[in-house]
Amino acid sequence: MSTHTHPVPFTKPEPPIAPDKEIAESPFRDFVRAFLRHRSAVIGSVIVLSFLLIALLAPFITSYEYTARSQALLQAPSVEHWFGTDEMGRDIFTRVIYGTRISLWVGLFAISGSIMVGSLLGLVAGFYGGWRDTIISRFFDILLAFPSILLAIAIVAMLGRSLSNALLAIAIINIPTFGRLMRSRVLSVKSEDYILAARAMGMKNRRILFFHILPNCWTPIMVQGTLGFATAVIEAAALGFLGLGAQPPEPEWGTMLADARQYIQLAPWTMIFPGVAVALTVLGFNLLGDGLRDIFDPRMKQ
């Protein structure tokens, strides 16, 4: 604390105005402020971060192995087994927690895969147009013509049932979502003045495409990616439920639900907890995605 030797002024001095700059605020700080002000974005990110921590710290949260069986079969939630046990006496809490790893893993890889492939295809289709656009857009149309889960089932059926094939199938069925988004974004960015200016500066097509158009297309892809993450988690659970995804004894939420189906009346907790886990994860990513969409929407800016 410094001591004042002069009388304290009645009004606070005006902060000095930054010369020549209308907005003395970095875009990143702007973003953080808008994010923290958006309630559902904050709630969503808290949920997502919690699941992320759970996935990372799984062995420290629970002392059981997810395959370890105990004598207590289908036991109701208790101090020993917080979420109860399943028909083989495995601790459900442990399995739900390890299941987080699988779900986030599938979501992350499937969605990054579809973003990479979809964006690249969309970029080429939107930028070059012509026959490339025709071929790529028709390919998207074909993929979208099937109900996506049906397509995923077909792909897994062809490749054989396993978690990695389910992941691949989820990645493939999500390609057109990102591809189309990217294509439409490229079409609009391509006609921006700064792209014409870049051409007038003598830049090559490829340079313009990757250094000037692509970075200006990321925002909607990021938002869609977050929302797509939720879809991927559901799809992974659905494939697991159908027995086409993770194979026992992997603690995949969908697989757990499938196993629990027979004991709904006898031991509802075998079903409730994995179900709640799926729902919460999806909710978290959806809230976060919606929040990001609002924040990035220029019309929402104050």
Binding site: D193, M201, K204
Partner: peptide
Amino acid sequence: RRIRGDQVAMIF
């Protein structure tokens, strides 16, 4: 391309 931005430039 070599001429654009180097010998002939444009402002919009």
